[in-house]
Design a protein around this nucleic acid. Sequence first.
DNA 1: GCGTCCAGGTCTACC
DNA 2: GGTAGACCTGGACGC
Length: 295
Amino acid sequence: MRKPAGWWWSTPDEVYENGTCWTATRYHGEIVGLKLWSNGTVDKPMIQCRGYSKEAFDDVARQGITRMLNRALKTDEDLKPFYKLSKRDNILCDIVKDLYGMHTVGWPELFPALILAVTLQMAPMKRSGQMMDSLLNQFGEKVSFDGKNIGYWPSPETLAKCPVEEMMAKAKLGYRAKNLKAIAEELSEGFPSLEDLVAMAPDEAKKKILTLQGIGNYSAELVMPRMGFPLDVWSAKIFGVLFNGEKPDNPREAIVALREVAEKRWNGWMGHAFVYVLNDLPRLSEKFGVDFTKF
DNA sequence: GCGTCCAGGTCTACC
DNA sequence: GGTAGACCTGGACGC
């Protein structure tokens, strides 16, 4: 397995050095420190993990966290059919050689994924980063283990109790504060976890996620336990060039049509194609003679 | 230093 | 059933 570039896996504060990742998650409301490293190869992958918590883990917790890791790292994903399809695909054929063995990822926890989706809405990257950093620093928690100090996201309960005005002022969320608070309330009152959503039919899971305030199609696709195709203005420009040879005049309006092309072209594997394409932009830039990294 | 514009969506009122 | 317009606010940009 490889660590896909781009977003962090669990928290922006996680540390990744020499093939080892120090990160954190929340298990049954408690912060857990995680140290993950590879003990395998691309052909025989194996991930080792050590967990750190205030109380010793019992067998149930150990099994629960292992289940979460398997789900969120997509360890049981069979990539063979995707690679077979990619051989005949002009866009994917070289990318899959570069990123051979890379699994797609899932989110360890639902709330942080929703925070990412909400803070990405209608904002340049720098501003989204500022909102997420503020949320982490103003409302999040720190966990210290194995010589690392990792910041982790606030719980839904914390933000559900926080006045909207305070969230706006401290996390610079603007109009998004109202939506994030509504989501936090919904989750703290009992909303299906990612484990529950995985167990549902994909359409049913998406429908459920779409009931959250401020979560539309893009955000739902981003959060979906099964890799979605979250086309936004940025990625629509990239896929516009890949499919049609040019950036769409109006990327926002082009999203629906581009999605249909991807669906037809990659069928059940469009989520994988999405991740592989966006993780290999330098190679695609060479191949298509367009600098996608500057989009 | 100041004014203007707009962003990696979503929702709603209106037709 | 489709769509224009509002939504916070900080950073980029022009002057």
